[in-house]
């Protein structure tokens, strides 16, 4: 149900390691909860993020959600395409709708995040609440 090549946060971000770097986005569940995404605000390349720090904002027509860094690190790239086509977050949250690429400062942090199965339990619990 959730891709197994990545890890998840309680705030519904995913992070997928790629060599020394990792790509971050929001989950299908999150985009569904938000509805039509109309705007994504992303950080400047080069910014240092602490784990759990808010790095951006995703907006739908009538809601706003902060984006939190799953791990600490340096922003090495952002998905520029989202500026003109934010709907990619709805259409393809796990691929085309990625948000930032970071170089983690403490790779061990990644292991502390949920895997797909744990995230599924988290989503179930939240939806049932």
């Amino acid at each position: 149900m959730h891709p197994t090549d990545r890890r998840y946060t309680k705030e519904h971000e995913w992070i997928r390691p790629e060599g020394e770097e990792a790509v971050v986005g929001i989950t299908d569940y999150a985009q569904n909860q938000l509805g039509d995404v109309v705007f994504v605000e992303l950080p400047a390349v080069g910014r240092e993020l602490r784990r759990g720090e808010a790095f951006g904002v995703v907006e739908s027509v009538k809601s706003v959600a902060d984006l939190y860094a799953p791990v600490g690190g340096t922003v090495v790239a952002v998905n520029e395409a989202l500026a003109s086509a934010p709907e990619a977050v709805n259409r393809s949250p796990y691929e085309e709708g990625w948000m930032i690429r970071i170089r983690p400062s403490a790779p061990g942090e990644l292991e502390e995040l949920m895997d797909g199965a744990a995230y599924e339990r988290h989503v179930q619990a939240e939806a049932g609440a």
Binding site: V38, F39, E59, V61, K62, S63, V64
Partner: peptide
Amino acid sequence: FQTREQHIRRER
């Protein structure tokens, strides 16, 4: 652009 406004963003 309603997300700028108080009824959604409240104190922000």
